[in-house]
Amino acid sequence: MLPLFYIFGAVAILAALSVVLQQTPVYSALSLIVVLCSLAVVYLLLGAEFLAVIQVIVYAGAIMVLFVLVIMLLNARRETPADRSRMARWLGFPLLIAFFGQILFATWRHFSGLHATPQMAAGPKSIGELLFRNYALPFELTSVLILVAILGAVILAKKQV
């Protein structure tokens, strides 16, 4: 049980590195799919089986297909490397690493030694009950949001702006 988390965590990190470093958008998209699937496995290990499947169906199966479709449609090939300023390279990267290293250090220290509660039901049933009892209003609001998004996407794709 335990090593699986570290194996898939490592896969997620390597694939995320590949998302960031690949020059070709299709390779980035494929790496992102790998990240999403390994995170789904991590969710499964954490007992969130419903979310794990939703992650694969919605994120990897629908959203990323849209990305791949758009990349294919626009025929996005290798991007030309940017002529970044020298300051960004020699100052920006160390600062970025220092910043996130600090956050990493702080979370690591602050939450160390805490273990998860032994068992928790997170199947579709308990999620559904919570969703429609306590979070019914936000749920309805998201349906309005999706309607707006559909209209927006149709109009943007249709009109010659």
Binding site: L2, F5, Y6, L104, T107, W108, F111, S112, L114, A116
Partner: peptide, 13 residues
């Protein structure tokens, strides 16, 4: 089960 700070570390990375 992985401890909480390992999960959060993965998240931060």
């Amino acid at each position: 089960m992985a401890p909480l700070n390992h999960i959060l570390a993965l998240s931060v990375i």
